[in-house]
């Protein structure tokens, strides 16, 4: 049965604004990035010289770049694993039938409204050496005064905690939505058959949540690689001594501060390869699902 409106031009007209925007600001610049990555570009000028794989060779022989690459990987893996585990546990608690469940939910999803810069500012304050609350608490509780933001490793840990905290709201929201689709009947009959809570979770809830988990996995990876820029810029500016200089921050500095256009384009391209890999994996695994920024 044909149940469509008949018009030859209307659907194209409806689609055209979206297509124009995508073409101008997504497809064309992405293609141009790819081209640029093969050129040496003079700073402040329009002179471009084709340089083949020069930028890439230079990049991968640069110890600092490799360092940032590794740092990004560790950052991403930690933020994603910690974030998903914690938010799944919280969502499971919120999903219990208890009084005030709705209130608890409201009190736990609000971090969704936090921006990376806001969480960066708050964490910079909490961990500041002069009168930061964290310094005070660690002193009172453990009698230690770690140099949170001036020690490279500790600063990296603070960045990870801030990023995980900021993501909590988003992850909890999606896990709660996912949990709504886990059938109560299956869980109840499993309980009657004598399956304990842990077993019920492992055999029923977790597998049924796997589409949500996978979706969140992808979104969190993309977040940790790209959206954490504001957090880094406000909290540590990539420091101390490059200790939090993840790929996106390096890219920004190479282009906007050091004016290394071709080199920065090559850096962009590597990030593109990364996100292509993740996306293909995602579409192959979950098929046609919806994505949120």
């Amino acid at each position: 049965m044909e149940s469509y409106f008949k018009s030859k031009w209307l659907p194209y007209l409806l689609l055209s604004p979206t297509l124009i925007i995508l073409a101008f600001f997504l497809f064309y610049p992405a293609f141009e990035t790819f081209l640029l990555s093969f050129y040496k570009v003079a700073p402040y000028g329009n002179r471009k010289i084709f340089a083949g794989l020069f930028n890439f060779k230079q990049m991968f022989s640069d110890k600092d770049y490799i360092y940032s690459f590794t740092l990004s990987l560790i950052f991403s893996v930690t933020v994603v694993l910690a974030g998903l585990t914690v938010s799944l546990l919280i969502a499971l608690l919120l999903n219990q039938k208890i009084k005030g469940a709705r209130v608890y939910r409201s009190l736990l999803i609000w971090p969704y409204a936090l921006s990376p810069a806001v969480s960066g500012a708050i964490f910079r304050f909490l961990f500041n050496p002069a009168n930061g609350y964290m310094g005070y608490f660690t002193k009172v509780l453990f009698n230690i005064e770690p140099k949170w933001l001036t020690n490279g490793n500790l600063a990296f840990v603070v960045v990870i905690v801030a990023a995980t905290w900021k993501n909590l709201g988003y992850n909890i929201i999606f896990y709660l939505a996912g949990l709504q689709n886990v059938q109560k009947e299956a869980l109840e009959s499993a309980a009657i058959d004598g399956a304990g809570a842990v077993r019920r979770f492992r055999a029923i809830t977790f597998p049924l949540l796997s589409p949500t988990t996978f979706f969140l996995l992808v979104m969190n990876i993309i977040y940790s690689y790209f959206a954490s820029f504001g957090l880094i810029d406000v909290l540590t500016e990539g420091g101390p001594a490059n200790a939090t200089n993840i790929l996106i921050y390096r890219l920004y500095r190479d282009f906007f501060v050091n004016s290394r256009v071709g080199y920065a384009a090559a850096e962009s391209f590597i990030l593109f390869v990364l996100v292509v890999g993740i996306t293909i994996l995602q579409f192959k695994t979950t098929g046609k699902k919806v994505y949120y920024q």
Partner: peptide, 15 residues
């Protein structure tokens, strides 16, 4: 799918 592959940082210079 292609759109998701193109977050701002991968096209920031030409944009």
């Amino acid at each position: 799918m292609i759109t998701q592959m193109l977050p701002l940082p991968v096209r920031i210079i030409p944009t």
